[in-house]
Design a protein around this nucleic acid. Structure first.
Lengths: 251, 251
DNA sequence: CGATGGTTTGACCACGCTCAATCAACGTGG
DNA sequence: CCACGTTGATTGAGCGTGGTCAAACCATCG
C-alpha cells in the first residue's frame, strides 16, 4: 500500500472552521455589535495556536475561559485519582469545551491538543458585568450551553452500548456527523486520535479496536489506512450501531 | 429475611428534598425577589405529581419547561431508531433535567417516573422577556447549566470503564454521592430502578449485574436485598471503581 | 390466592482481553 | 542517506470475563 509523500512545501496547517460555523458565532455577533463599548474589550481572544500534545489547561486549575476549537482537534480526560486517565471526549473544529468550569471556578478536566491546533477563548472575568448590560449576550450563552448539554449527553450513548462493534460503529458515525454539521466531508476524513485514545474512550482494548477496523474493512463498510478513513456503507454501519439483539448466526 | 410490613395508613410518599437543596433554589430566590412583577407569574410550577411509570415528556415533543425532581426518581432514555431503548440517566431529588431542550425547542429524550414522584417545572415561554428585565435570573440559569454539564460529563465515566466490576462500583458510588450531596444518607438507600435498568444503563447483561451484587455482598462490600442497599466498605468500592490494571491474582 | 414480571442461579460458550511477536511509520544521529 | 531506536498499529494464540439460554425463585398486585 503506497502512501502519497507529503508535500513538504505546504506546512501542516490543520483544518480550520469558518467563524459562522463555530459555536461561538452567536456570541461573536453580539460582541461585534457592542465593540465600541470599552468594557467588552478582549473578551474573545482568537486563534491561540497549540502544538501537538500541548496541554491547554489542567483539571483543578482556576477557570478563566471557555474555549472553541477553530482548527485541529483536542481531547479532554480526567484522571481517576490513583488510576489511569480516562478520556471523556474529543473536540473538533467549531466545538466548545470548558463550560463546566463556570460554576465551580475550576476546570474539571485536562484538555490537550491531539495535533497542531487553534482555539478561541471566551474570557469570563467580566461576565456578570457584561451580562448586566447586554442580556442578549447571556441569552446566547444559555442557548450555547443548552446545545452543549445535548452534545455531551449524546456521547453517553457511545460507551453504554453492549458490544464492541456497536460502540465503534456508533463512534465513527458520531464523528462523521459532527464533521458534517460543520461543513467538512462526512464520509472521508482523518481520525486525529490514536487507536489507544479510541480504545480508552470506548472502554475497549487497543487490539479490539484494531481488529474491528479490519473487520469493517473486510465487510466493505469502510476503508482505513492509518488515520485516514473513508466510510463506504453508512447505512450498514448505522445498522450495526443500533443492533442490540445479537442474532445466533449473524455473519 | 423479614420485611417490615408497610404502614398502610401512610401513603407511599416518596422521599422529598427541601427547596434549599434543590438545583432550582438559586432561581427560586430570584423569582421570589420579583414576585410582585406580573410578568413572572407562574414561571415555576411546583409539585406536579407523577404515578409510577408515568411519562413526563417524550423525545421530539415541543419543549416547554425544564424540570427538577423534588420527590421520587425518574429516568431518561432515548430510543435508537429501530433499536432498543438506551437509558441515559437517572434523576434523583434535587436534580435537574430537560435543559438540553432550550436550544432545539424539542425534548431530546423521553423521561419517565420510576416511582411515584414529584417534579417542579420551570417554564420558558417568557424567558427572553424575563431575562431582559432580570439579568440575575439569567446568571442563575447559566451557573445551573454549567453544573449540569459537569454532572452529565461525570456520568460519561461510568460506562466507559472497561470491566463490569468497575462500572457497577462506580455507578453505586455515583448514586451514593448524589444522595449525599442532597442530604440523604449516603451508605444506606433504596435503588429505585430495576436491575434491567441498571444493566441497560451500564451496557451489561441483567445476569451480570445480579451476580456482581452477589459477589460484592460475599466480599462484604455491601448488603443488598431487593432494592434496599447498604454500603459497608466504601473505600474498597472506590478501589474497585478505579482499578484499571487487572491483576493476575486479584482475590 | 394464583398470575405476572422481575430476580437469581446454573451451565455453557463466545466475545474480547492479555500477552507477545511482528510490522509500519517516523525521527535522530552517524 | 541509511542504520537504528522509538512509538504506534497490527496480527496471532490462549484463556477468562461476561453474555446467552433456561429454569427456578420471589415479589408485587389484581
Amino acid at each position: 500500500m503506497k502512501t502519497v509523500p507529503r508535500d513538504k512545501t505546504a506546512p501542516a496547517e490543520p483544518d480550520t472552521v469558518d467563524c459562522p460555523r463555530c459555536d461561538f458565532f452567536g456570541i461573536l455577533r453580539v460582541l461585534d455589535a457592542v465593540r465600541d463599548d470599552s468594557r467588552v474589550n478582549c473578551i474573545l481572544k482568537r486563534r491561540q495556536p497549540l502544538a501537538k500534545g500541548e496541554t491547554l489547561f489542567r483539571a483543578g486549575q482556576p477557570f478563566h475561559a471557555a474555549c472553541a476549537v477553530t482548527g485541529g482537534s483536542l481531547m479532554s480526560y480526567g484522571l481517576l485519582d490513583g488510576g489511569e486517565e480516562q478520556i471523556l471526549g474529543f473536540h473538533f473544529p467549531g466545538e466548545l469545551f470548558g463550560l463546566d468550569g463556570i460554576k465551580t471556578g475550576r476546570y474539571a478536566y485536562t484538555t490537550r491538543a491531539l495535533e497542531p491546533s487553534l482555539v478561541c477563548e471566551l474570557h469570563f472575568e467580566d461576565l456578570d458585568q457584561l451580562g448586566n448590560h447586554y442580556p442578549a449576550f447571556q441569552t446566547q450563552l444559555i442557548e450555547l450551553m443548552s446545545r452543549q448539554i445535548l452534545h455531551v449527553q449524546r456521547q453517553n450513548l457511545l460507551a453504554a452500548r453492549q458490544y464492541s462493534e456497536e460502540r465503534l460503529a456508533a463512534f465513527l458515525l458520531n464523528v462523521a456527523g459532527r464533521f458534517a454539521v460543520r461543513g467538512f466531508p462526512a464520509t472521508e476524513f482523518r481520525l486525529p486520535m490514536s487507536r489507544q485514545h479510541i480504545s480508552n474512550y470506548l472502554g475497549l482494548a487497543v487490539e479490539t479496536v484494531s481488529r474491528l477496523f479490519q473487520q469493517f474493512q473486510e465487510q466493505a463498510l469502510l476503508v482505513v489506512s492509518a488515520k485516514r478513513l473513508r466510510l463506504l456503507n453508512v447505512a450498514k454501519l448505522e445498522d450495526i450501531a443500533r443492533m442490540r439483539i445479537r442474532a445466533i448466526n449473524r455473519r
